[in-house]
């Protein structure tokens, strides 16, 4: 779901710089305080992009076993290896996971895949074949997720399962179905791309995604803050 705000309209490269900088700080400064600062920053990005908060909370809920489990596990390991403040370790891990979720939500829900391709080609100078490969991998992932839901409905429809989690016992046919789907999708897509002349040589672009002044300012600011924090 695309939204329109100054932060959502930033170039995908700028968003990548934001995320890379924040993750670097979080990793380099391994304390709870910094993890919380980064979490606050990631949440601010989500909110300033006018993304739906209730949707974010639903995603938190979906990942809650993972967030709680991993945090608890880290706190437990810290306690048996005599690390001081094991509870703090647990909270730090939770803040890190939540930050990563926020960044993923911010990037994926505010970035048009077409803009991502063009930014990679024009701003990062990646050969167009690789940029499209990345974009198509993203496209396939989204289609695969939708297809997975379709398979679950179909299995319920033939009374093979009653609840989603029961699909685990049908993991082999489910995987076979997903592979068959990807295989036929890739076959059709590659035939279409070939028929439309993809990969023949030099390509032109009817629109160009270029770094704006806002992107330059935001990226420079992010890199400056990161440098200062690292040197602190």
């Amino acid at each position: 779901m695309q939204t329109e705000s100054r932060f959502s309209r930033l170039d995908p490269l700028t968003k990548t710089i934001f995320i890379a900088v924040a993750i670097s700080i979080m990793t380099y400064k391994g304390t709870l305080n910094y993890a919380l600062y980064v979490y606050a920053f990631s949440l601010a990005l989500v909110l300033l992009s006018k993304l739906c908060l209730s949707r974010l909370l639903k995603i938190y809920l979906a990942f809650s076993p993972f967030i709680i489990g991993l945090s608890w596990f880290n706190a437990y390991i810290a306690s048996i290896t005599a690390v001081p403040n094991p509870i703090e370790v647990g909270f730090m891990v939770a803040a890190r996971i939540l930050s990563l979720i926020n960044f993923s939500v911010y990037f994926s829900l505010t970035t048009d895949p077409d803009d991502l391709v063009l930014s990679l080609i024009h701003n990062v100078r990646i050969p167009y074949q690789y940029a499209y490969a990345l974009s198509i991998a993203y496209l396939i992932l989204v289609k695969l997720l939708n297809y997975y839901v379709e398979v679950l409905h179909s299995l319920k429809g033939r009374l093979a399962i009653r609840w989603d989690f029961e699909a685990l016992k049908l993991i082999i046919p489910l995987t076979a179905s997903m592979l068959a789907y990807v295989s036929s999708y890739v076959d059709a897509l590659s035939a279409s791309m070939e028929a439309r002349g993809f990969g023949l040589g030099d390509r032109s672009y009817w629109r160009v995604v270029k770094f704006s002044k806002a992107d330059t300012t935001a990226s420079a600011l992010a890199l400056a803050v990161a440098t200062m924090v690292m040197l602190w």
Partner: peptide, 19 residues
């Protein structure tokens, strides 16, 4: 299954860009 782009214009322009 043959769409490469997300926007109508980008999709329709794809062949011409390749040319």
């Amino acid at each position: 299954t043959q769409f490469v782009a997300n926007r109508v214009g980008d999709e329709v322009a794809f062949t011409l860009e390749n040319l």
